[in-house]
Amino acid sequence: MADNNLNGPPLLELSLAEPMDAPTFATIIVNSTVVDTRSPLSFAGGHIKGSYNIWLDGLPAFAGWMVDYEKDIMLVTERQEDIEIATRYLARIGFDKVRGYLCEGIEDWQNHGMMLEQSGLYTVDNLHDKLTQGDLFVLDVRDKEEYSEDHIPGAVNIYVGELEKRLDEVPSDRPVVSVCSTGNRSGLGASILARGGFKTVYNLIGGMTAWKEKGYSAF
């Protein structure tokens, strides 16, 4: 039992998701949750509307905050071999409804002429230059302890796990820049904002690590 908790269920007990082409995938996602495990950079370049961007190794920690246990899960991944890893991670925390995955990747979706959404990216230099203009809302999605240690001047802290329930605290009439330590949690935060109807959302690539590396001020 201890070994299963560490490594997930044995492969024979693991029900792998069904491979689907883009048209089939599109019909199923209407009543499902799409989880895109690609990198924040790949996700920003083009993703299916309404997807959560939970990077692969972040699934065990963050899927439980976002995903409805009663709904089927549909996966979009960077590589074919990520399907088993993602399914195992999800099974380990009680998700047993991983129904299908986009077998030819996001390119198949695009090649079938289906709509892709894009989200914005900021470098730390971009953000530093824009901060003086005062029209950006900087959202720090790290936990309170990380935020207390240091944060970008003026940033407001809402932990990414709580963000979906606190969207009313984020202004919808200003561009929002999502920030974490490196760009993964902030990528998830940006996808949550997009799902919530926010139109102008950016992910800060490199996060606070890159910000401090540049020597920019942090409180």
Score class of each variant (00 low, 15 high):
Phe43Ser: 10
Gly64Ser: 11
Thr132Val: 15
Leu90Lys: 08
Asp129Thr: 12
Gly50Cys: 00
Tyr122Phe: 15
Met74Ala: 05
Arg92Tyr: 07
Ala91Pro: 11
Leu136Met: 06
Ala61Val: 14
Ala86His: 04
Ile93His: 05
Leu131Lys: 05
Gly113Ser: 15
Ile28Gln: 08
Val76Met: 03
Arg99Ala: 11
Gly58Lys: 04
Lys49Thr: 07
Lys97Val: 06
Tyr101Thr: 01
Thr33Lys: 02
Leu102Ser: 04
Pro40Thr: 02
Ala91Met: 13
Asp57Thr: 15
Ile48Met: 03
Leu59Ala: 07
Cys103Glu: 15
Val30Phe: 04
Met66Arg: 14
Leu116Ala: 06
Glu104Tyr: 14
Glu107Asn: 12
Cys103Leu: 14
Tyr122Gly: 11
Leu75Ser: 06
Leu131Glu: 07
Ile106Lys: 09
Phe137Gly: 13
Ser42Ala: 14
Leu121Phe: 14
Leu116Lys: 07
Glu81Val: 14
Asp96Thr: 12
Asp125Tyr: 12
His128Glu: 13
Val98Leu: 02
Arg92Glu: 15
Val124Lys: 01
Leu127Cys: 05
Glu81Met: 09
Leu41His: 15
Glu78Lys: 01
Arg38Asn: 04
Gly120Met: 01
Ile28Ala: 11
Pro60Trp: 01
Leu59Cys: 06
Gly120Arg: 02
Val35Phe: 10
Thr87Gly: 10
Thr33Leu: 07
Phe95Glu: 01
Asp96Tyr: 13
Leu127Met: 05
Met114Gln: 06
Ala91Leu: 09
Gln133Thr: 13
Gln80Ile: 13
Phe137Leu: 10
Arg88Lys: 12
Thr37Cys: 08
Arg88Ile: 11
Arg79Thr: 04
Leu131Ile: 09
Val124Thr: 03
Val30Asp: 04
Ile73Gln: 02
Gly58His: 10
Gly113Cys: 08
Phe62His: 10
Asp57Ala: 11
Ile85Thr: 12
Gly64His: 11
Met114Ser: 03
His47Leu: 03
Leu59Asn: 04
